[in-house]
Design a protein around this nucleic acid. Sequence first.
DNA 1: TTGTATGCGTTATCAT
DNA 2: ATGATAACGCATACAA
Lengths: 380, 380
Amino acid sequence: MALTLEDIARLSGVSRSTVSRVINANSNVKEETRQKVLKVIQNKNFQPNLAARGLAAGRTNIIGLVIPAGVAFIFTDPYFPLLIQGVSEACNAHDHSVMLWLAEPEYERRTISQILHNGLVDGVILSSALMDDPIVKSLHESKMPFILIGRHPTLEVNYIDVDNIRASREATHHLIRQSRKRIATITGPHNQIASYDRYQGYLKALNDRNLPLLSELVLEGDWTEAGGYAAMNRLIPYKPDAVFAANDVMAAGAISAIHEAQLRIPEDVAVVGFDDTPNASRTQPPLTTMRQPIQSMGALAVETLIDIIDHPGSDSRSILVATELVIRESCGALISKPEGGDESKNPVDYQIPPVNQLHQSVGNPADENPNILRRRVKNA
Amino acid sequence: MALTLEDIARLSGVSRSTVSRVINANSNVKEETRQKVLKVIQNKNFQPNLAARGLAAGRTNIIGLVIPAGVAFIFTDPYFPLLIQGVSEACNAHDHSVMLWLAEPEYERRTISQILHNGLVDGVILSSALMDDPIVKSLHESKMPFILIGRHPTLEVNYIDVDNIRASREATHHLIRQSRKRIATITGPHNQIASYDRYQGYLKALNDRNLPLLSELVLEGDWTEAGGYAAMNRLIPYKPDAVFAANDVMAAGAISAIHEAQLRIPEDVAVVGFDDTPNASRTQPPLTTMRQPIQSMGALAVETLIDIIDHPGSDSRSILVATELVIRESCGALISKPEGGDESKNPVDYQIPPVNQLHQSVGNPADENPNILRRRVKNA
DNA sequence: TTGTATGCGTTATCAT
DNA sequence: ATGATAACGCATACAA
């Protein structure tokens, strides 16, 4: 049987309460006593029972990480692994544990109510993807602290995201600057907010330069390599000279299709992806892509969630993490001189901040107001 | 505040114990009462507090999944995601939750003792990899039920694994049958049991056919694509006509290197991998590989662990899951007629069972006794 | 079949 | 600064 507070108390000649105080770093304990107790604890390698602690304190230091499995099958995509890793590391660093739910549709209803009411979890990180995810609504209506990875289209909830619109706009502008005229895009699934935002950015970029939207050059993918491959195959007959894929995995698929069609990259078709996942640099040619710091976002989610848990009733937080266009010359680089003279300056009306600089925004990122970006104040 | 047993009891006009009985499917309760209580529970969407349940019953229905992070950085490899998915799904299906620990070296010591003693976890699935992993020893010395994914070289512990030796031997035989004479291998890291076993299988295959071991054709990789690429580059000067990579990701790296050296696959160099990860079929040419059902192994681990938890003191289990050589003609296929006449029959002295058939073995898989493979008796 | 009483290992409130 | 004691929400042995 495992040791208890009582055991430690007896062994160190104090009361249970004092041991509890020592463990919880309560200042009301004489240094001498503290050391004595601490020694016994170390000696016996005592670990307080978390279930009991949870019961008594109403707090478990456990965070739930929920990933809808309708989306999670994309495990050939490093996105979720990286997110999990980021969350896990941050939890370790903050003395929390992570409970993982890959919420399969069939179990979803049971799962969500379990999470909310079983008293085992202090808060939830939800990698929501679907625009109308019922889990988000359930959480929003409950008292459970939670934070989304990826903004929500309508509800005012806590979230961490990159500014997908801005980032995609920037990525598309990169292609426009190369005088690409027939820029295709392979989007993510319609019902996901990230897909929507990235498509909006693409549209805005075209609009910025008065380029027409060619609807035959817009195709919906499913984030997978096979999907990108299939989409590109259907795109090729329409002779695009560039393609913006909403993630790197689809971009890789597109590259395969382009090669098979005997077209050259980037001479015939330039390719730009999104994510900068580990092997974006290993495609042939290396992929130009929009980097988002997925692991950092996971970590930031943890820290913010803990902050929310510690300060209930505080304002809702919307945190935007900066992205960075990673130009790998061979894949999405300039192939012709700019037509006009103004292409040398960045056509986007703001500077992309460096990737490791985290920013907080209070508004909706869809709003056109780069100035509300503020440096995030930690532990504020 | 969340509802409690007491609330439900009051609402349905019975005692707390009766409600508890209903929830725990105790047979000693009148059907009528049962229905009555059940209705209130459904109605109020009551969820018992798991912390309290854990405290009282000494069981939480939570399973810990521990992945050493020294290994987990390989998240560009779908292995761990697939494993996590398999474990998670099985846990859902069995009404358990999964607690995830990506055990980083710095936190390892604290982590392990937390897992063992915090009373939050009924048992642990450990994706051990290192031969001398201290976590395994800690677990082995503790009373915590646990199961390894991947056998342990010395300790007699519960594990799930594929027969790596046998599988690699089979894979290598496939190359030998093509009259390949200079068969290279890219192994995993030395200190991992899977690497060791797969290398042993390679050695046995050479030995089976009296082929010499050419030490310049053996190189240690690190499971990553970059590692496979680098290893292959160093291998090429020694003119191998085939290479067996200990996993698909390294095989993909090797393919890149071979292409860059202007060599043809499989005419000049045949390639065989291990795992059959989702995009093994998407390499150019498609990869011939040894399939292991990673997700199934995760699920089987969960079921076995629950069984162990339910029946403490039972014998230790060693379960081997069958593998299957997936021959994709273009990558590791025959390029020349067999030299002798006996190559037509399988040189390995046993049939590889179909992949979805799970088997149990009592002995050490390193032992040469295919006959001890038995169908696993479920719920036995 | 049902209710009562006790204990699980903490934290927290109250004394001292 | 420390110690008793009462919750926390549930399961279970025992009584009825």
